[in-house]
């Protein structure tokens, strides 16, 4: 029998499966309460549809292929924007974290831009870039950039003096020191930033799709709202939530794979 007390026991212990049961059970309970509340008629059903109706709409959309094509359009923009924004954010974080002139020059501007709600920048983006794919990808990248930049910069700041000393006595300096110590040491911080960016880039993309798009999952949700199709609108929300959850789990697993040296948290 596997021990319950082994802290690093990788096999699913009884307590782990019971934890999964609790999570699933609470989700099922929430759906049941929602179903009951919607059916009780306290609120008009076309505004507050039960989950069963949402599920029906989801299945219908999936069958017609509309859901898949909207999800694919958003997914393409999102992944391109996330990749672009994360790369720029990581590069900027390494630069502003490790090189004081860059920090002095760029940090105030970046912090200024960071606190401007991205919804407010949408009209400007439309004016400058039109409603093509570029503006939406740029917007998703914008949403991804800031968390990755900030967490990378913080990670670079907190690189332990001991690592730098050890590397320097072993012959690393200049760019080599940067590549051999600052980059690997700040990767876990960057990964945390990218994990936040998985969602923040979705927020930004949704803003872009609602204002300047003719497809995409957020556009579809907004469109259904305008047509009073509550079930379909909620189906879109559910689809985004599930996809986002899956993307987050995949990303967390990938990080564990790619950074195997991290102490188990």
């Amino acid at each position: 029998m596997p021990s319950r007390f082994a802290a690093n026991d990788p096999s699913p212990s009884p307590s782990e499966s019971s934890r999964a049961l609790v999570s699933l059970g609470s989700a099922a309970a929430a759906l049941l309460v929602w179903e009951a509340a919607a059916r009780s008629g306290v609120y008009p059903p076309h505004l507050f549809p039960p989950p069963s109706a949402v599920l029906r709409a989801l299945v219908l959309d999936a069958r017609s292929g509309e859901l898949a094509s909207d999800l694919a359009a958003s997914g393409r923009r999102w992944s391109a924007g996330l990749a672009l924004g994360s790369l720029c954010g990581a590069a900027a974080g390494l630069l502003t974290g490790a090189w004081r002139p860059a920090r002095l020059a760029a940090s105030p501007l970046l912090h200024f831009l960071r606190v401007v709600p991205f919804m407010m920048l949408m009209p400007l983006t439309l004016l400058w870039f039109g409603i093509g794919e570029e503006s939406k990808i740029l917007f998703a990248a914008w949403g991804a950039f800031f968390p990755v930049w900030l967490s990378t910069e913080t990670a670079v700041f907190s690189v332990e003096r001991e690592y730098v000393w050890a590397a320097r006595t072993l012959g690393a300096d200049g760019l080599r020191l940067w590549w051999e110590v600052y980059v690997p040491r700040s990767l876990p911080g960057t990964a945390t930033g990218v994990r936040l960016a998985v969602s923040t880039s979705m927020f930004a993309l949704a803003a872009a799709e609602m204002v300047g798009s003719f497809d995409g999952i957020a556009y579809r949700a907004f469109y259904c709202y305008q047509l009073f199709q509550s079930e379909k609108m909620m189906a879109c929300i559910a689809a985004v939530g599930v996809c986002g959850y899956v993307a987050d789990r995949i990303f967390a697993a990938a990080v564990r794979r790619l950074l195997p040296w991290q102490e188990p948290a």
Binding site: E162, Y163, A166, A167, T169, G171, P184, L187, L259, W261
Partner: peptide, 15 residues
């Protein structure tokens, strides 16, 4: 490298 260093804390690169 002719002066090698061994420290107490953070002695190794964890990565």
């Amino acid at each position: 490298v002719e002066r090698g260093l061994v420290l107490q804390k953070h002695a190794l690169f964890p990565w």
